[in-house]
Simulated scan of single mutants.
Amino acid sequence: MLDLIFFEYRPMLQDLLTIAVCIGAYFWGSAPERLVAITWVLVFEVPGRLYRAVSEDGLRLTGTDAFLATTDVVAGIVWIGIALYANRNYTLLIASMQVLAMTAHVARSLADTISPVAYVTMVAAPGWFQLIFLGIGILMHRKREERYGPYRDWRIPINIPLLTKLPRYPRGPRP
């Protein structure tokens, strides 16, 4: 059981999955897919690598890791906002997985008897599901656009230049 959690190549596999899904979101996704991917990179990948580079301790498993808790809360706020306004259903799944990761920190803060393995599992496992949900969401978005043509990204019109001016790449010939 613990071999699955502490699998030697797990971080490398997650990095490869992250790269593939985020690149896919940029080229084949629309605004919600891109924002979810951008959030992943800007909240987890870049600060996480900087934290591991400057931190001597690495991740804290004996108590609540303030860095992990902060990044999870920031990502949770952004992804909940995206989920509420995006014209996509899978973003709700991504936001709900992030809420699970956020509650893991609360549970760890309230009960010191939670084992470090359980804490790591509650914090890390939702990330795998989020990447898988984003990948499936990109594929479903692409399939829907091929079948029905372009459709709106948001449930209500949003006139924020950053969101409305994202370039759209040619998707290939329409059937």
Rank of each mutant, 00 (worst) to 15 (best):
residue 21 V to I: 15
residue 23 I to C: 12
residue 24 G to K: 02
residue 24 G to S: 15
residue 24 G to C: 12
residue 24 G to Y: 08
residue 25 A to L: 09
residue 25 A to S: 13
residue 26 Y to W: 15
residue 26 Y to V: 07
residue 27 F to T: 12
residue 28 W to R: 10
residue 28 W to Q: 06
residue 30 S to I: 07
residue 31 A to D: 04
residue 32 P to H: 13
residue 32 P to I: 09
residue 32 P to M: 11
residue 33 E to M: 08
residue 34 R to N: 02
residue 35 L to D: 00
residue 36 V to A: 14
residue 36 V to D: 07
residue 36 V to N: 06
residue 37 A to T: 13
residue 38 I to G: 08
residue 39 T to Q: 10
residue 41 V to T: 10
residue 41 V to N: 05
residue 43 V to P: 01
residue 45 E to A: 12
residue 46 V to C: 00
residue 46 V to H: 01
residue 47 P to N: 06
residue 48 G to A: 11
residue 49 R to V: 07
residue 49 R to E: 11
residue 50 L to K: 01
residue 51 Y to N: 04
residue 51 Y to E: 05
residue 51 Y to D: 04
residue 54 V to Q: 07
residue 54 V to M: 09
residue 55 S to K: 10
residue 58 G to I: 11
residue 58 G to F: 13
residue 58 G to D: 10
residue 59 L to A: 08
residue 60 R to S: 15
residue 60 R to G: 04
residue 61 L to K: 03
residue 64 T to Q: 09
residue 66 A to P: 09
residue 66 A to T: 06
residue 67 F to Q: 00
residue 68 L to V: 03
residue 69 A to F: 13
residue 69 A to Q: 13
residue 69 A to C: 14
residue 70 T to H: 05
residue 70 T to A: 15
residue 74 V to R: 02
residue 74 V to W: 05
residue 76 G to V: 10
residue 76 G to W: 13
residue 76 G to T: 14
residue 77 I to K: 01
residue 78 V to D: 00
residue 78 V to E: 01
residue 79 W to G: 00
residue 80 I to T: 14
residue 81 G to Q: 06
residue 81 G to S: 12
residue 82 I to T: 02
residue 85 Y to D: 04
residue 86 A to M: 02
residue 86 A to F: 07
residue 87 N to P: 05
residue 88 R to Y: 06
residue 90 Y to N: 03
residue 91 T to A: 11
residue 91 T to C: 14
residue 92 L to P: 00
residue 94 I to K: 03
residue 95 A to L: 08
